[in-house]
Write a protein that binds this DNA or RNA. Structure first.
Lengths: 231, 231
DNA sequence: CCGGCCGGTGACAATATTGTGACAGCCCCG
DNA sequence: CGGGGCTGTCACAATATTGTCACCGGCCGG
């Protein structure tokens, strides 16, 4: 699975080494020598993964990570931090800023590749582009459109992803942590109850046509999308 | 609720990632790269929880678990098994060994944290996602649904767990203390008679279709789920 | 036939969990 | 630089679930 990977590393030699390895593995590599350039590249086109050096001239890697996490659009891009330090405290700080994983220099190409695969594998397992329709409710990922009983429905990006996930995994309860992992991303830190709020917004958007009944609450467990009426 | 957690994992990278995440959550982490070291650490000081990789060099995770379970002093320390997806079919074997829960790799930090919290609260985990059907009564953990003779049945969380346990351990008498351990969790302090109340609620929910007869009272001993009519 | 157990029930008050409305921060688009 | 659209969090309201009791009624051994 070829991926677009952004490498933000100020030491040209190391950057070249990493890039060569990644390209040999079939990935497309974007390069940045500093955080500012990295940020610009991310805004131009979202990569599938970012390798980010901890220490950078100017804006540090941590600052960049924090900044990316603060923005809704870039929030879900996985980040692997590269660092020379190996102190636990730094790792904790790195994870707090939202890094998905952490690789300490020096590292072997094989290890890096393994980490990259692990992170890529963990995110969005099977997002299909095929439209799905259940009980008159239709969602089309390709055109990013939703209609309920013929009527178009307007949803925000998060509610769209939430509905899409639920519709492609119906007849099964999803706990709040699971929904956060699958819809928000596993490195995003938000309150569990945020799920409730979005479920509510989704329901009120579907209320007009009565399709809100498809989203059922399972007390003590989570939520479920089901064509069958709640028991 | 900071806890002392022992992580037995042979891959240093994964161990570090887990440890960092746990520390961020405020836990104290003890590390072991192999089962022997883990065993030594446990003997020095009992942790509150053990995260144990299934595959380890030398003594395997399952051997260590068995060994801990055999020892009086270490028997009650909760264990969460870490397994790769390919070993997933072994999960039943793992639970039989006495693991309190299992988590398949790759896992998200949030998911792991959720499992850890559940185990530390000593909540009895549900062991299987497979639906069970007996005499027209069907329970499906994945969708969290129950139907009796085609009719949907509404149950509270506790009654659901109770029914699930009974249906997966049928044709056997369970005493009230046993049911409390298995369904409520082993540290919970509740009146024994509470079981009676929930049995009653379960029965009245199944009464409409006559499936309440499947839950039999064994005077002086406890309750039994049986497809055969009471003797 | 008579207590003494044991399980069945209905009612309750305490809790736990989920639904809602309001709000402040952010980003993007004029 | 102002407005609108989204988001994540709260505090609070609305419900659902739970654990206990007290009270009954049946079964059993004496």
């Amino acid at each position: 699975m070829p991926a677009h990977i952004l490498v933000v590393e100020d030491e040209p030699a190391i950057q070249a080494l990493i890039a060569a390895n990644l390209e040999r593995a079939g990935h497309v590599v974007l390069r940045a020598l500093d955080a500012e350039t990295g940020l610009r590249l991310v805004n131009e086109a979202l990569p599938d993964l970012i390798l980010l050096d901890w220490m950078l001239p100017g804006m540090s890697g941590i600052d960049l990570a924090r900044r990316l996490r603060a923005n809704e659009r870039t929030r879900s891009v996985p980040i692997i931090m590269l660092t020379a330090r190996s102190e636990e405290q730094d790792k904790v700080r790195g994870l707090e800023t939202g890094a998905d994983d952490y690789v300490t220099k020096p590292f072997s190409p094989r290890e890096l590749q393994a980490r990259i695969n692990a992170v890529l594998r963990r995110r969005a397992p099977q997002m299909t582009e095929d439209p799905v329709e259940v009980g008159g409710l239709r969602i089309d990922p390709a055109s990013h459109r939703v209609s309920a009983g013929g009527q178009p429905v307007n949803l925000g990006p998060t509610e769209f992803r939430l509905l899409h996930f639920l519709m492609t995994h119906r007849e099964r309860v999803h706990s709040r942590p699971q929904l956060l992992d699958q819809v928000w991303g596993d490195h995003v830190f938000v309150e569990e109850r945020t799920v409730d709020v979005h479920i509510r917004r989704l329901r009120s958007a579907l209320e007009a046509t009565g399709h809100d009944a498809l989203i059922q609450t399972v007390r003590g467990s989570g939520y479920r999308f089901s064509a069958m009426p709640a028991a």
